[in-house]
Design a protein around this nucleic acid. Structure first.
Lengths: 309, 309
DNA sequence: TGCAATGCATAAGGGAGATTTATGCATGAC
DNA sequence: GTCATGCATAAATCTCCCTTATGCATTGCA
């Protein structure tokens, strides 16, 4: 039968310390309490057990036989507890888990993270590419980079990238209809995701209130990579965030026919983390790093919203 | 580094139960507290650790990754604690340790204890033949049978045998001086322990106030066996407790020349145990057994003082 | 031998924090 | 839709844990 309840854990904790020091006074110092408090806890334990665990001698105490039997095992158990918490604490200190919006992860973070790892070799980074309401509730990550979902109210939120967008396509596809000269030309070509609600926003800004797209609300911010792949393959026109496709635009894999860039005022890529993490070393390091890295990356303060941070 | 302090043990205790049940409510039932109290303790733990250990889902909770790491080890440690206390408790329940006055142990208990062991096969008996002030302080025994030392004030004390005594000697030694006809005849023979303060007491009662013994106070109750051995060997006259030497008197190894028996009013063999042990099963069993056994052994209630018990 | 120092026990009292009560909220079942 | 389940939270309470102060016994030292 191992089912009878434990003696009070505070008494066990006191016993563990006393049995190592063989001194109420020293145990009290270790535990941050007075000798009298330790004496009280040992008395509680002995009354609960029904037998003494220490023999009080002059100016010292000894374990009784039963006390000795208990002490070895209790000290062992507490050593296990201490190492368990210590290990997890250490892991927590040295591993940074980032739940990251997939687009941001693949189009920006992947390429830049190496610098962070070089600068902070003691930190192991784990990226969870995911962007959903549940992700916040999971609690597994230290930091979240989200595209659209608002963090829980107790989280601190920093804007990173505004949700800008403009149509893009492969130059060969543009050439197939003699070039893109006006926004309506785009409607002659396949639209990679007509359900993307960015389309009507952009066309409206372009002066075309009701383009024939048959859309319904749905954000693609989590996976614009798929649309981009189709556009790069010449299969259609995608509406993408220029910041993420600078390389493809520079290399000519994609062209952006119009300078006209709309942005979604209710959305932005942002970094967030629980208020309680604000002073955690690893969170500070990553936060500071990503801000400066994005600045270096050519965005001014207003665009990144760093002024708010 | 295993040196950083443990989180509050009450929080650890709650975590252990919750991680087994994966339910605050059920853990609360096990711990005898409300769901709200468990929730509070888990919150304390998570704030102390700096990361969540449970993911709150709809109508259930799950361990986080770090929570899982902790849980396995914490549950193990608590299992060790439980079995440690359970083992010692079981040993305590099934082992009866008697610190016993050596004379009583060898002259009475040894011969009778077998019956007790037969009647209580689940109890292991251990006798510590010792009778000293320190013995009480040791705290290792469940019960003490003492000859002369008063138990600590919180102990319960039952008289067992009054400290009676009368001179005894081997018949051949008596015959060597033509028999013992008056108390003064004893003074012609070697006295095994002239320092024994029982001698002057007995001679005084026999009407001889100042026998030539050159004695100083010193009780031999702890070791009258040594004197008895010398008397049985015909080496001298001993002053012994008749109750303990009935067998030798019956077999003729010793004779008691006079019916005159004195007793030491301040002394008696008695059984004692801490007040807190009064309802312990093993103590009750032994106490009840020794009373009836002594009664069967021919002592009436008044002599044993059982009326007081 | 007396005096100071050490170490535990104990009583009294206060207070931190553990717990309960009561309520709200979200989810899932029917 | 309604009800049941399960956790979170606020407020209030109260337990009991701890400190303070003191006593006692032993030891060491002068």
């Amino acid at each position: 039968m191992t089912s009878d309840p434990l003696p009070p854990v505070l008494a066990i904790r006191a016993f563990e310390a006393v049995s190592r020091h063989l001194s109420f006074t020293k145990a009290g110092e270790e535990l941050g309490m007075t000798q009298a408090a330790v004496s009280y806890q040992i008395k509680v334990l002995e009354e609960r057990l029904g037998f003494p665990v220490f023999v009080r001698r002059a100016r010292k105490i000894d374990l009784t036989e039963k006390g000795t039997q208990l002490a070895t095992r209790v000290v062992d158990a507490f050593r296990d507890l201490r190492t368990a918490f210590s290990d997890v604490r250490q892991e927590n200190d040295t591993q940074l888990v980032i739940a990251c919006n997939p687009t941001f992860a693949s189009r920006w973070l992947a390429a830049h993270l190496f610098d962070f790892q070089i600068a902070n070799p003691d930190l192991a980074i784990r990226i969870i590419p995911s962007d959903s309401e549940d992700q916040y509730k999971n609690g597994e990550q230290d930091i979240t980079i989200s595209g659209c979902y608002a963090p829980p109210p107790d989280n601190i939120r920093h804007p990173l990238i505004p949700a800008t967008f403009s149509p893009m396509l492969h130059p060969d596809l543009a050439a197939s209809i003699g070039g893109i000269n006006s926004p309506t030309d785009l409607l002659k070509l396949p639209i990679t995701d007509p359900a993307d609600h960015w389309w009507p926003l952009w066309f409206a800004k372009a002066g075309i209130p009701n383009p024939d797209l048959g859309s319904w609300p749905s954000s693609r911010m989590g996976s614009q990579g798929l649309e981009a792949d189709r556009a790069i393959a010449g299969k259609g026109v995608a509406i993408l965030t220029p910041f993420f496709y600078r390389a493809e635009l520079a290399s000519g894999q994609l062209i952006q026919p119009f300078d006209l860039v709309e942005h979604d005022p209710g959305m932005a890529w942002h970094l967030s983390y629980p208020h309680s993490n604000r002073n955690s070393r690893k969170v500070r390091l990553f936060r500071d790093w990503i801000f400066t890295e994005l600045l270096k990356d050519g965005l001014d303060m207003e665009e990144t919203g760093l002024a708010v941070a």
